[in-house]
Design a protein around this nucleic acid. Structure first.
Length: 265
DNA sequence: CGGGGCTCCTGTGCGC
DNA sequence: TGCGCACAGGAGCCCC
């Protein structure tokens, strides 16, 4: 799943390739991917726009065009493939440099929006702070008085931006914290450690170009590299790297959650 | 406020 | 071999 590190990887890779390039034509292959405006208007308005910048906010990718903003949310299975036109693409942007930017999305839960502004998107207005911008004190404030389970809170984009199901599980394992703990039950020391582990795992994941545990690929179509370095995600039944006991799996907030019963308290 | 469940959507992988 | 079904989940939404 594309989370902060995967979206950041896409942003960095594409920034080197398509800034200054013009979108010359658009093909939409699935009628659910364009959320606004209508598909026809979307195509008409994006035609001949040049790409001036790429911004990331949490898991959102924003292409700054000369007249509009193209806002891409990859959700679960979205990714962007640069190069040749791909027959499986849900949408294809033909570029003035002769290349194509393919919007890939197996499960079609992602979305494309073309707007004249982006700050007013409700998702962005409610979006919490980026983990890297958080101080220990601010993080403690977020956890304060919250009875929500710590893992569910980490996934709440309105509290903290960019963390998804993979890195929430990883950070909690690294910090030795049981995902079921109420957020308010964490001590100052635990909160500080957890924030550090969140930053550590996100930094490591960016360094390794993200995790390809599912559909996600980088803009060259290559796998990430972080998927081989994950400590608990997807490791149900396999031995814990710290204590050797089998990793367990449960459902939290209707999402799979792997953890070590002994190492996470 | 918290928790649970449903919805969107399709490809994969399992059991029979 | 092939069919059918459960499952994967980010985020919005509804209800209790």
């Amino acid at each position: 799943m594309p989370e902060l590190p995967e979206v950041e990887t896409i942003k960095r890779e594409l920034s080197k390739k398509i800034i200054g390039v013009k979108i010359t034509d658009i093909t939409i292959n699935h009628n659910k991917v364009v959320k606004e405006p209508s598909q026809d208007l979307f195509k008409k308005q994006i035609q001949n726009s040049s790409i001036e910048d790429i911004i990331r906010r949490g898991k959102l990718l924003i292409f700054v065009l000369d007249k509009k903003f193209l806002i891409v949310h990859l959700r679960i299975s979205g990714w962007l493939l640069y190069g040749e036109k791909d027959p499986k693409a849900r949408a294809v942007f033909g570029l003035s440099n002769g290349k194509f930017l393919n919007y890939m999305d197996q499960r079609v839960l992602g979305e494309l929006r073309l707007r004249s502004s982006f700050e007013d998107l409700s998702f962005l207005q409610r979006l919490g702070p980026e983990p890297f911008e958080l101080t220990d004190k601010e993080f403690s404030e977020i956890l304060k008085n919250k009875k929500t389970k710590i893992k569910v809170l980490l996934l709440d984009q309105n509290r903290i931006a960019g963390i998804g199901n993979i890195y929430a599980q990883e950070a909690l394992f690294l910090a030795g914290i049981d995902p079921r703990r109420q957020a308010l039950s964490l001590t100052e020391k635990e909160a500080k450690l957890l924030l550090k582990k969140i930053k550590d795992v996100l930094t490591e994941a960016i360094k390794y170009h993200g995790s390809s545990v599912d559909a996600y690929r980088d803009t060259e179509g290559k796998k990430g590299g972080m998927e081989n370095r994950l400590k608990v995600y997807g490791r149900k039944g396999e031995p814990c790297y710290k204590c050797g006991r089998p990793i367990e799996k449960m459902s939290l907030g209707s999402r799979g959650t792997c953890f070590c019963k002994k190492c996470q308290r």
